[in-house]
């Protein structure tokens, strides 16, 4: 399988199929990332399209040794920041719960799960942008710190500190807002066998 950088080099050389391969590889991730952050799915789709359009416009800037994934993530994050500046709109924290979790779960369980998901989204939304971006790339997208550092324009140590502080703050926020009596409470759902020895 060709690497991202080989695909990008092929695209710069005129291979349109390489662009499609890059799109197939990264559009789902960018869309997922942006859907968590902007006000509507339509905005998220527009920003992904804008990110790939900018990848095309910037293709002659691509140099050997650069990495495509941090490039694309940085473009998407910058496009999102610009979108916020222009529209002033961010992801609402009171969105309807996402689709049902799956079969075999009662509607009351789904309701509780939806409420918990809402609470977690609200906690995520209340983080400072720089911590939230790092957590989303680290936990949800599984990017290594070195790539996250490239994408957000900071050094690796700073990114690690942001992640640590962000996770710490999330834990505090979720503890503060938790209701120990609720059966679906995310911090009270630990199974007995889950824990540390």
């Amino acid at each position: 399988m060709q690497t991202d950088e080989e695909l990008m080099a092929a695209y710069v050389a005129g291979d349109a199929g390489a662009f499609r391969a890059l799109f197939d590889r990264y559009a789902p991730m960018l869309l997922r990332m942006l859907r968590r952050q902007v006000a509507s799915d339509a905005d998220a789709r527009d920003l992904v399209q804008l990110a790939f359009l900018h990848l095309h416009r910037a293709r002659l800037d691509f140099r050997e040794g650069s990495r495509v994934r941090p490039w694309l993530v940085t473009i998407a994050l910058n496009a999102k920041r610009e979108h916020f500046r222009r529209t002033g709109r961010r992801r609402e924290t009171t969105l309807e719960p996402e689709r049902a979790r799956g079969e075999g779960i009662s509607s009351s369980d789904q309701l509780v799960a939806g409420e918990e998901a809402k609470r977690v989204r609200a906690a995520l939304a209340s983080l400072p942008d720089n911590q939230r971006e790092v957590i989303e790339l680290h936990w949800f997208e599984g990017l290594p710190f070195a790539e996250i550092a490239d994408a957000v324009g900071a050094n690796v140590s700073a990114v690690k500190v942001r992640a640590h502080r962000g996770y710490e703050r999330l834990r505090m926020l979720l503890k503060e807002t938790s209701n120990p009596g609720a059966s679906g409470n995310v911090l009270a759902m630990a199974e007995p066998g889950d824990g540390l020895p």
Partner: peptide, 17 residues
């Protein structure tokens, strides 16, 4: 005991396209 990780389970974020 990994409580935060469970809270951040993938289904609190939008599904794939």
């Amino acid at each position: 005991e990994g409580a935060l990780a469970r809270a951040l389970a993938p289904d609190v974020v939008p599904h794939d396209a």
